[in-house]
Design a protein around this nucleic acid. Structure first.
Length: 903
DNA sequence: TTCGGCACTTAGGACTATCATG
DNA sequence: CATGATAGTCCTAAGTGCCGAA
């Protein structure tokens, strides 16, 4: 049967080449052979990967490793229990659970050197090895971590739901009604929704459509609130409503808070404001030449530069300590080129006799004195008394106060980045061809101001004028300029906690929630289209599959003069390695030149397709999706839902994953434990989105320290056990000799070293304390202690050393503490073991977290309402999850949901 | 259909404040 | 009370995606 999966009629290709629109049957078949669809995967290792295409069920392999689990699955997409309709059993399989063979698998190359801080850098350079080589080398250590307990989960989930259903039968029905009323068909089984009723109509008028949730939802809520007072489900909302009126009154008296998320109508999505007043931008301070004695050195000779050139030299000099830039040849080359241009213009340098020195070679430049001067300045600033620092800060604040806020439709709103970017050296990431170039000072003449017609236009600095004054009501920016290196547009916009940003955030998440209603349909479609005989469709379906399953970015085309990074649509031949039967290895640099490495199992058909897309004559450097662009992809996606683009999948899958994880969580334990559990879920999402950070410089060191500490504790455990024998020789028999054995890895050599280290540590501590005490005495004008006193105090350390020495000699440990008994010692051992366990957990946590950044997903991908609900339900203060700024940013979420809310 | 222009979100790293810890 | 680790903030680069003109 496996050869019949291509049941669609095939149009004969004209030339038979892959690049034709149609996929020749022969090729498709050939691919079948190369990638045997019935290739066996050991069920023990394999997590079920790609969702099974119904059309492929005749292929044993794909089903083989999912075995019985699938049958029992109940779709939980909407948080409601119902039998999954039709053939999309796996559509809702939570992302993070599926298909990552190596969720946290480190690429083989990284493994060797986790202690080196430059590893990430290395990892970020494009691998030179061929794709095949990578495949092979990683063969050996396909790390299979994180296997999530799918079975258990679905059982728990079902039980959970049942319980819930019983608890709130009434509630549920009320909710159901209200939900329907409020235009959310969350509860309707997939089967019923899948008909693309809206399809055609929605296509073009996305503007108004995508706004629908924003506009309609709150309105619906409000309308509901009145009549529903009696139903339990509505109580919450009724209350909110009541509070609101009160608050409104209060608000009017003070600041007046605008609860836009409760405001119906408002904003058709294009017009963003009616009136807009603001103070413009703050320019960076003019360059202040360094004191005369600070010289740039050329070829060993201290020379003087024209201030303009000196400023540029100072950019470079001040960053001598960040090897990241200064050791990058491109950075140096670009810098020197731009530096030379300015030097040519300003007459190069003068030596102390006023003779011109021409600067020709970068290697002969010495920026050290400049660097040192900057360092000393920095130190000076740091050493400033706290009071002075504060005063300085306050002064700056008052100076900038006017720029901090604007008036947006008459409401005071915080402005985000009102400071114009100061000149500097461009720090492009990864292998950016322009990194190191001089980013010039921005003049008022380059800046366009966007402001209300009736508002007072901010004064440009004396003797200057703005480039242009606009009154663009459809823009949310206050000022704009273009930077000189890439021609990038820079905008001054409102801060994240402003209404306007909040609104678009809200919209974003509502859009993702809407995708929930269409996702099954979409998944079904792309699975079907994976087999389309049209190359374009097949590529598109495959791409959507990757975006959906692995949270890849869209992957727009990039220019020549940018770093060479990719996303889904721009994946190149060498970024994807195929390992039969159905394992795919992704290895490429994504946004910010962050490496994406993942070894996953995919749907058999996807594997086959990728093989076709990589078919000769394609080779390194060629596009895998050569018939696909992001705009074609997005255009296709809009057919399903207005405003649906590739990016929405990331939001959806991230939030959906978080929602699932939080829902599965048990409300038990201390607050700390709950927070930890939340962070673990957060981490899973971060891993899904490949949000990374560079490993902290001291990571390996602090790791080692922890290990030593743990070993120290283990040693103490052993010693305590030995003390038991000292107290009562009989325990040795009772507990067995094994109990008293010192762990093997803590061999005699280690022990001696450890003892010495302990003694030394104690000695240091005593000495330090002594010195400090003395200082104190000196400060109080009293007599300092004699060195003899120190000697006496150090006796303790010697005693310890002696004790250890004796222990080593006799092989016995004298019991410590008063009235030691076996019982007491046993509790002591227990306590020590507990501490060891805690530390181990802490350590693992740290290690697992060392290159995962949680912030990005929390700020951009996880619907904040999920966190708010979690906080309320589990009774953990929201402060534990959101910092002050985040609480402000997510104000709308905090104030708008009760604990019944679901993503 | 492609391309450049434009506006907006997403991103990691540098810098800074705060907290724990010894 | 210093000191190092961690959390929080700031900065700006690097994406996405839309639009209209060629």
């Amino acid at each position: 049967m496996s050869s019949s999966d291509d049941d669609t009629p095939l149009v004969k290709a004209k030339t038979g080449a892959v690049s034709q629109d149609r996929i020749p049957k022969a090729l498709d078949k050939a691919m079948d052979k190369q990638a045997p669809s019935n290739g066996h995967v050991e069920p023990g290792i394999s997590i079920r990967m790609g969702p099974v295409d119904k059309m492929d069920v005749d292929e044993p392999a794909t089903n083989g490793n999912t075995n019985g689990k699938r049958k029992a699955r109940v779709s939980t997409t909407n948080g409601k229990t119902y039998k999954d309709a039709s053939n999309s059993e796996d559509d809702d399989k939570p992302l993070s659970k599926r298909r990552r063979t190596s969720q946290q698998a480190k690429p083989p190359k990284d493994d060797s050197s986790s202690e080196l801080s430059d590893v990430p850098l290395k990892a970020r350079t494009l691998p030179k090895a061929s794709a095949e080589q990578i495949g092979q080398s990683s063969d050996s250590d396909t790390p299979l971590t994180t296997k999530l307990l799918r079975k258990k989960e679905s059982i728990e989930k079902a039980a959970d739901k049942e319980a819930k259903a019983i608890r709130g039968k009434e509630k549920a029905t009320a909710k159901r009604k209200s939900k329907i009323a409020s235009d959310s068909d969350d509860d309707i089984p997939l089967a019923k929704k899948k008909a693309p009723v809206k399809k055609g109509k929605q296509v073009k008028k996305e503007e108004s459509d995508s706004d629908a949730p924003l506009a309609k939802k709150p309105a619906a809520k409000k309308a509901k609130a009145k009549p529903v007072v009696t139903t339990p489900a509505k109580k919450g909302k009724g209350k909110v409503k009541a509070e609101q009126t009160e608050e409104d009154r209060l608000a009017e008296e003070e600041e007046e808070e605008y609860r836009w998320w409760e405001d119906a109508g408002k904003s058709d999505g294009t017009k963003k404001w009616d009136t807009l007043e603001h103070a413009g931008v703050v320019f960076p301070p003019e360059y202040e030449p360094m004191p005369k004695h600070v010289k740039f050195i050329y070829d060993g000779v201290p020379v003087t530069l024209h201030p303009e050139a000196e400023e540029i030299a100072s950019f470079y000099g001040s960053m001598l300590n960040s090897a990241h830039n200064v050791e990058n040849p491109t950075f140096n080359k670009n810098f020197f080129e731009d530096f030379t241009t300015v030097l040519d213009k300003t007459g190069h340098a003068k030596d102390k006799d006023g003779k011109t020195v021409k600067i020709k070679t970068f290697e002969k430049c010495d920026f050290k004195p400049i660097f040192e001067w900057f360092e000393s300045e920095r130190a000076k600033k740091k050493a400033l008394p706290a009071a002075e620092k504060k005063a300085l800060k306050a002064e700056k604040e008052t100076e900038e106060a006017a720029f901090m806020h604007c008036m947006w439709d008459g409401r005071k709103q915080k402005v985000g980045n009102f400071r114009v970017e100061p000149p500097s050296l461009f720090r492009g990431r990864g292998e950016h061809p322009k990194t190191g170039r001089v980013k010039k000072r921005v003049t008022p003449e380059q800046i366009t101001i966007n402001i209300g017609e009736k508002a007072k236009v901010p004064e440009p600095p004396a003797g200057h004028r703005w480039k242009e004054i606009k009154h663009d009501h459809e823009g949310t920016w206050l000022a704009m300029w273009q930077e000189n290196i890439n021609g990038a547009y820079k905008y001054v916009m409102l801060a994240a906690n402003s209404d306007i940003k909040g609104q678009s955030d809200f919209k974003k998440f509502e859009k993702a929630r809407e995708l929930k209603k269409h996702i099954d349909h979409i998944r079904k479609d792309y699975r079907k289209e994976l087999k389309s005989e049209k190359m374009v469709d097949r590529q598109r379906a495959t791409a959507i599959y990757l975006i959906d399953q692995f949270a890849l970015r869209a992957g727009n085309e990039k220019g020549e003069d940018e770093a060479d990074t990719v996303g889904c649509c721009s994946l190149k031949f060498q970024h994807v390695t195929l390992k039969p039967p159905n394992t795919v290895i992704f290895d490429f640099l994504g946004k910010d030149s962050i490496r994406f490495y993942d070894e996953v199992e995919v749907d058999q058909q996807v594997f086959k397709n990728l093989k076709i897309f990589k078919k000769e004559p394609k080779t390194t450097g060629d596009d895998i999706f050569d018939r696909l662009t992001t705009s074609a992809l997005n255009k296709h996606l809009t057919n399903y839902m207005a405003g649906l683009t590739a990016k929405v999948f990331r939001t959806y899958n991230a939030s959906y994953t978080m929602a699932r994880l939080l829902k599965e969580m048990k409300a038990k334990g201390t607050i700390q434990e709950k927070v930890k559990a939340y962070n673990d879920a957060n981490r899973e999402v971060a891993i899904l989105c490949n949000h990374k950070r560079t490993v902290a410089a001291g990571h390996a060191g602090s790791m080692e320290k922890m290990i030593e500490k743990i070993n120290g504790l283990r040693y103490q455990v052993w010693r305590t056990k030995m003390m038991m024998i000292d107290v009562d020789t009989k325990v040795k028999k009772k507990k067995g000799a094994e109990y008293f054995e010192r762990p093997e890895d803590l061999d005699t050599e280690w022990m001696k070293q450890h003892q010495e280290a302990e003694v030394e540590e104690l000695r240091q501590k005593i000495t330090k304390k002594f010195e400090k005490d003395n200082e104190k005495l000196a400060a109080e004008n009293e007599k300092e202690m004699k060195p003899k006193e120190l000697q006496e105090r150090l006796e303790k350390a010697t005693e310890l050393a002696d004790k250890y020495k004796k222990e080593n000699k006799t092989g016995k440990v004298e019991a410590e503490g008063k009235g030691p008994t076996v019982d007491k010692l046993e509790t002591a051992v227990e306590k020590l073991n507990q501490r060891i366990e805690n530390m181990k957990i802490q350590m693992e946590d740290k290690e697992g977290n060392k290159e995962v950044a949680l912030g990005t997903s929390k700020i951009n991908y996880i619907d904040p309402r999920l966190t708010v609900v979690f906080s309320k339900k589990f009774d953990v203060p929201i402060e534990k999850f959101f910092s002050k700024t985040l609480r402000e940013k997510f104000d709308w979420a905090i104030k708008s949901v009760d604990e019944d809310w679901e993503f």
